[in-house]
Design a protein around this nucleic acid. Structure first.
Lengths: 118, 118
DNA sequence: TTTACATATTCCTATATGGGTATATAATCT
DNA sequence: AGATTATATACCCATATAGGAATATGTAAA
């Protein structure tokens, strides 16, 4: 089997840096392809192709406006990524590291007084 | 150009569902390859190969133990993903949706009383 | 109705992949 | 030493890229 399609899910779509850049650029609001081409400094066809991938995974929506197409961010599609990675946050977050320290202290105390339970 | 290597960064490494499964399995602590094979229900060589990718992006560390190799999660490597996707959380989070509602209400009031500022 | 503009699609090519299978490497046991 | 166990690597193959270039489609302007 080959690698999963970029359009398979948000994880694959967003693995490409250009597509993350596109989403970042759309965070400020609706934008025509033209402007995205300027922002990314990439050729127009590639931008259109990246946008298509993002559209297929539901990360952006399009709206017609004359001869332009306005793309809009749809963050919902990124929720699965957020949910998954959220479970690992405790491995680096200050807050959780502090919590770990407290738990460690409690454990020390427990060990010190004879460890009655468990 | 072709797609970026799976070992290019955490985003690419984690785009593969099997590799996310591996990390999830390691969340409970150190595990030998053997056990990961059992958990994933995948052939041993593929598991070793996926582990190699995760190792190359720093998402796991290895430790030798006799003829076994114990893999351990290193969540730090996932921080860039968390940081990036975090910026989009407001687009679906209850808390932020409520905040948006409040802001919307304030805006309505402003419009109603003649819109003195802005 | 030409012309210009905005965007999408098609064709090309080199490349890395993920699984399958076989084999290499290395440690432990008998 | 030979057998077994645990893990990694090598090889094969079908497949989907990402960018480049050319072109198609469609809308607006002259």
């Amino acid at each position: 089997m080959a690698r999963a399609a970029t359009t398979a899910d948000a994880f694959n779509a967003v693995a490409e840096p250009r597509r993350r850049q596109l989403l970042d650029a759309l965070a400020g609001g609706e934008r025509p392809v033209n402007e995205l081409v300027r922002v990314l400094g990439l050729a127009q066809p590639q931008v259109s192709k990246h946008l298509r991938v993002l559209r297929e995974v539901g990360a952006v929506d399009v709206r017609e406006d004359g001869r332009r197409r306005l793309y809009r961010l749809n963050g919902q599609a990124l929720k699965p990524i957020h949910d998954w990675v959220q479970n690992y946050e405790r491995l680096w977050s200050e807050r959780f590291v502090e919590l770990d320290d407290v738990l460690e202290d409690l454990k020390q105390e427990e060990d010190g007084d004879g460890g009655s339970h468990e």
